[in-house]
Simulated scan of single mutants.
Amino acid sequence: MGVREINRIEPYKAAELFTSKHFPNCHGALLAGSVVRGESTATSDLDIVIFDKNLKSAYRESVIDFGWNIEVFVHNLSSYKEFFKNDCERARPSLPKMVSEGIVIIDSGIIESIKQEANDLLEKGPEEWSAETIKIKRYFITDLLDDFIGSTNRAEEIFIANTLAELVSEFVLRTNRKWIGTSKWVVRSLRNYDEKFADHFVEAFDSFYKTGDKNKIIVMVDEILQPFGGRLFQGFSLGK
């Protein structure tokens, strides 16, 4: 057990102490992240969202205090709206999710309405992809899949597979009007969409990484593209 783990106090108490110390006059504060979802690990940090109507502009800061690595996201009562909008446009609702799941630390009467805004956005889901966007995504997945199939260089295959996993997971989620993610949130987003499919997706890539067998990935990608017309190369143009 590391020194930081030994010195850690209970996460909500640490969040209270941190907020009282650094933002005593804020109008609202939430504790979010993995500790709230019950998914914390030995390296988890605290995510704290602060609302202060007197703040001129939003900022993010990383600090160590009370035995915890703390990520603090500081907003006034209008800046968070632009972050909500930008997060939803890129289909990665980081701030809305933190606000929605967050546990109240301080509330001067503003948190309920902000949470409702976040919940409404999350429930709505991302904007539907246009037919043209789907066509472009099909082309780039097809191009990458061809590279993957044709490659005989193990080192290159690994990184092609990584990119293919990102593009294909994005395609599945966005064509189903679901939120996407990066890093660990790729598989979490897939599981939020469909547990069985997520297991199938992970198994296909895990099989390749362990054995070098590409077939499960190839079959899966073709199955995903098939309802949208399958692989796309012949006749595709962009900017013509």
Results as ranks from 00 to 15, higher is better:
Met1Cys: 11
Glu5His: 10
Lys13Glu: 15
Ser20Pro: 00
Pro24Glu: 03
Val36Lys: 03
Ser44Leu: 01
Leu46Ser: 09
Asp47Glu: 09
Phe51Arg: 00
Asp52Val: 04
Ser57Lys: 13
Ala58Asn: 09
Arg60Ala: 11
Arg60Trp: 10
Glu61Phe: 01
Gly67Lys: 02
Trp68Val: 01
Asn69Arg: 12
Ile70Tyr: 02
Val74Cys: 06
Asn76Thr: 02
Asn76Gly: 04
Ser78Phe: 09
Leu95Gln: 01
Leu95Asn: 05
Leu95Cys: 07
Lys97Asn: 12
Gly102Asn: 01
Gly102His: 02
Glu112Ile: 10
Ala118Ile: 02
Leu121Glu: 01
Leu122Ile: 04
Lys124Asp: 10
Glu127Asp: 14
Glu127Leu: 12
Glu127Trp: 06
Ser130Val: 07
Ala131Gln: 14
Thr133Met: 11
Arg138Ser: 03
Leu145His: 09
Asp147Ile: 04
Ile149His: 09
Gly150His: 08
Arg154Met: 14
Glu156Met: 15
Ile158Lys: 14
Ala161Asp: 10
Leu167Cys: 10
Leu167Arg: 14
Ser169Phe: 05
Arg174Leu: 15
Arg174Lys: 11
Thr175Lys: 08
Arg177His: 14
Ile180Val: 07
Ser183Lys: 13
Trp185Thr: 01
Val186Gln: 09
Ser189Glu: 01
Asn192Val: 03
Asp194His: 05
Asp194Phe: 00
Phe201Val: 00
Phe205Asn: 03
Ser207Thr: 15
Thr211Trp: 11
Thr211Asn: 13
Gly212Ala: 06
Ile218Val: 15
Val219Lys: 15
Val221Tyr: 00
Asp222Gln: 14
Leu225Thr: 03
Arg231Ser: 06
Gly239Met: 01
Lys240Val: 11
